[in-house]
Amino acid sequence: MNKTEIGALIEKINAYDTIIIFRHVRPDPDAIGSQLGFKHAIQKLFPNKNVYAVGSSVDNLNFIGEMDEINDAIFTDALALVLDTANAPRIDDERYKLCKSIIKIDHHPPVDQYGEINIVNTDSSSTSEIIYEILLNIGYGTDLITREVARCLYIGIVGDTGRFLFNNTTSRTMAIASELLKYDIDHTQMINQMQQRDLTSIRFQGYVLQHFIFEEGVGYIFITKEILEQFNISASAASLFVNSLADTQGIKAWAFAIDESSEIRVRLRSKGVVINELAAEYNGGGHPLASGASVYSVEELERLIAQLKALVNA
């Protein structure tokens, strides 16, 4: 990210009366936090523009803010800002294709540069961290960071760093978090809301901890449609427990697979071995230590897990 890219971004925002902010499907705190944080900042900078945030809602993340519901006609003369989304097929709401111009802002490895402008910084902990840096560098300083902007960006950073436990947490990340806390945000309440689960989800987590398999430094579990039905939990809600395996002594990597009807979605995590290249072999990708993949049969899932074991023990 450099001043030329930021200048081009602001020039585009200046040129449009309608800005629509997108992010990826199955959103996490960073996707929603960066999206809504940027929306609030743009609204402050350009109060006469129409700024919307679109995409599906996730019940346990609604405390960050609400999505906008708008009709197709609004998209046709709009600028699309797509945040935290590595490749175009993962954009939540295909109406981004109706927009006149697309800008990508992301921190994932640049697999698919689908924007006319692509602002990508893989050294950032999160897209929320990138949005903070953009707001500092567009010539208006921290005046654009209101309390509402700060709370959105803070929870995005907290989410993608695993509450500052993951190795993507840098001194710059901590410095930014410290600055955001100066805006009188109730960070304890937000983190509690982010972590809070209903009784059904807690019982599902118990099932995961009792039934995951741990072999050769690798943990894995396959959540079938029958298990989802048994616990009356959605695939998206179940996926929030991907890190339940993380505290297992001796674990080096793990796979959390869920049958989502059209595909088996596999969330891959590692404590050191790079896994995004393996994910790319299975219709996915992501960060070196946190990636996603898609397989279409139990046999294919078994091959992926076998390769993960081989990778960990190479």
Rank of each mutant, 00 (worst) to 15 (best):
V218E: 09
T142F: 02
E179H: 11
A238S: 13
R163A: 14
G159V: 04
E226C: 09
N167L: 05
R147M: 06
L144H: 01
A177K: 09
I176T: 02
D198A: 10
N243H: 12
T170H: 09
F204H: 06
D198Y: 07
S239N: 13
Y154G: 06
F241N: 10
T224Y: 09
D184T: 03
L153Y: 04
Y207C: 03
H211A: 03
L180I: 11
T173S: 03
E229L: 07
Q195L: 15
Y154H: 10
M190W: 05
L153D: 07
A237I: 12
D186E: 13
Q210E: 15
R203E: 12
M194L: 15
R197S: 14
F231M: 08
S234K: 13
F204M: 07
S234F: 08
Q230M: 13
T188A: 11
A246C: 08
S178I: 02
E148V: 08
R147Q: 12
L209W: 06
S234E: 08
L144S: 05
I223W: 01
K225W: 00
I223S: 08
T170M: 08
R172P: 01
F166T: 09
F164H: 13
V242N: 07
G206H: 13
A175F: 05
F166P: 07
T188D: 11
R172T: 11
E216Q: 15
L153Q: 04
Y183C: 00
I221N: 08
L153R: 01
L228S: 01
L153I: 05
F166D: 04
G217N: 11
S201N: 14
R163P: 02
N192K: 14
L144R: 04
A150S: 04
R147G: 00
